[in-house]
Nucleic acid binder design. Sequence first.
DNA 1: ATGGTCGCGCAGCGA
Length: 260
Amino acid sequence: MRIATWNVNSLKARLTRVEEWLGYAQPDVVCLQETKLADSAFPALAFQTLGYESAHHGEGRWNGVAILSRVGLTDVVAGFGDDGAPDPEARLMWATCGGVRVASAYVPNGRAVDHDHYRYKLAWLERLRLELEHRYDPTEPLVVAGDYNIAPSDADVWDATQFVAATHTSVPERQALQALLDWGLVDTFRRRHAEDGLFSWWDYRAGRFHKRQGMRIDLLLATEPLAHAVCFALIDRQARKGSQPSDHAPVLIDVEVARL
DNA sequence: ATGGTCGCGCAGCGA
């Protein structure tokens, strides 16, 4: 079973690229972020034509997450499943696909370390941790895939000196990510690829992609029962090339279902 | 050169 995550930076602007990618990557489950669509504008029929069930949690101009699946799509939950106040932004959804509980997550960017949005980011990550702790079991197969807007280590940024005291690399953000790992999640891509210079996002500006100056912020975090069954992991840089690309590349893992 | 490019939506913000 191939599971992918991709921040598409507007599904309306990216639909042709997404359809093309589904055709050659042949994922079974896809978590999308930044669809920037209202639910009424989500192109479910286009995905159905390609063999995918889908569910979307959107708000319109900003944010928005979706899950596509050709191995079943049940028990959909939009947002946090706790009894707290609804998240004001559409950044999280859950579904069960092929026996795996899947989340598509678009973690807040943070903007600046002294910004309200940065505090929202840290609180959002803690709320996600509490949801895992209260509602899920790290001995069951589960993946929380998405744009975390955090580079887990300095090996995940092109030049750590460019990010001193900046968002995406700050100690509190990395601690919040580590708290998810401490609960029982594994960075599945990093487990299979130890080298640095492997990124999933590159700024559109200043030729960053062609200079190989990016960050690895799109992660497939999985519980051990799923992580130990991963036999392949890839960042598809091809999808960042060509006409009208997203600024993120898709990241995918292949899971040996017999080992789940 | 202290910016650069996108997307949204029609100014300027967010990433």
